[in-house]
């Protein structure tokens, strides 16, 4: 008798969410099985590759390996975003680093103007990622939501401490909310319920479960994403059936090991390849767990991970 593999029984699916507007709108989610389990369910959309641009020149913070591919555009956010699209980005994420109240503390208007520049430069969907400071993010995201009216951007992180204010701004201008919670299934669910009560529709909701980079808590993110996926797909937990976005590059490239030069760490080999693989492995693990969008920094990572997805689909 031929061998009959045991199939997982699925009772739910991940909602399909559309980001952006016009021809270049991108669909994410829509799975009816665990990630890449196409032998027992459908995966209509591959995980999407987003790339990040900063609203300030990152030269002080970035190591050579990640600066090099962008060296001509780091001071010009529009050109930078275009370059990312050339590198294969399906989504652009604007990290509003200049908003940090302990750092540059740039004004909400200037950040909104930067976001507008990106929106004018590219037609792929845009995500705006704040600094996780409730007061400042609220102020900035209100201005950003207005400036991006009609473009259906996604705004992140929307946390328990600021969901009413930022959620309302998203509602007002038709944007997508990224519901962000600290590595916990129940907190993720709780915040989605609160956002639902506020009036945010499931069609406008993504989950950010908090990303840990390789060697720095990746396993926590990995398991919470697997648990959210199990609840959504096998336990019909309809409050968790939202696509997941992970801010990968930002986490990985701030770790010590991704930035050590060949002189500082001769035993760790080629620094650029090491960093690229640390970023790629983090992305692969999170996609295997169930991430629907991974935000990346290095163009070589984008190329590697895209090739990987093509083989897995």
């Amino acid at each position: 008798m031929a061998f009959q593999p045991t199939k997982q029984v699925y009772s739910g699916s991940i909602r399909e969410i559309s980001l952006g507007d016009g021809d270049k709108a991108v669909k994410v989610g829509g799975r009816t099985a665990f990630a890449f389990h196409s032998f027992e369910g459908s995966m209509p959309n591959p995980p999407r590759i987003a790339m990040e641009v900063w609203d300030k020149n990152p030269s002080e913070d970035w190591c050579e390996a990640v600066k090099e591919p962008f060296k001509d555009v780091l001071g010009d956010v529009g050109a930078w975003a275009k370059k990312c699209v050339e590198f294969g980005a399906e989504i652009i994420v604007v990290q509003t680093k200049s908003a940090d109240p302990n750092g540059d503390n740039a004004s909400a208007d200037s950040i909104a103007a930067t976001v507008k520049k990106v929106l004018d430069a590219v037609d792929v969907p845009v995500v705006v990622w704040g600094v996780a400071n409730h007061e400042k993010d609220t102020e900035v995201m209100r201005a950003v939501a207005e400036a991006a009216g009609g473009r259906r951007i996604a705004i992140s992180p929307v946390e328990e401490g600021d969901y009413k204010q930022i959620g309302a701004a998203c509602l007002g201008y038709g944007h997508v909310v990224v519901s962000s919670s600290p590595i916990d299934v129940n907190l993720a669910k709780q915040l989605n319920i609160l956002l639902g009560n506020l009036g945010v529709a499931n069609a406008n909701l993504l989950i950010d479960p908090t990303t840990g980079g390789l060697g720095y808590g990746l396993e926590y993110s990995y398991s919470v994403i697997e648990r959210i996926g199990q609840a959504a797909l096998t336990q019909e937990d309809e409050k968790l059936q939202q696509p997941i976005i992970c801010n990968v590059g930002n986490e990985v490239w701030k770790s010590k090991e991704a930035n050590l030069t060949a002189e500082a760490a001769p035993d760790l080999g080629d620094p650029a390849k090491r960093g690229i693989l640390m970023e790629s492995i983090t992305a692969v693990d999170l996609m295997l767990a169930g991430a629907d969008i991974v935000i990346l920094r290095h163009p070589e990572t984008v190329k590697l991970v895209k090739g990987y997805i093509a083989k897995m689909m």
């Binding site: 760790l268 080629d270 390849k273 090491r274 492995i281 692969v284």
Partner: peptide, 28 residues
């Protein structure tokens, strides 16, 4: 590493490749 391999064979051992994998294995 994530999905159930017991032995993993690669063409070479290079620190830029094996170090991230060892971290990955430690995490998972």
């Amino acid at each position: 590493v994530s999905k159930y391999g017991g032995v993993i064979v690669m063409s070479d051992v290079q620190p830029h490749s094996i170090f991230p994998l060892l971290l990955d294995r430690l995490n998972i």
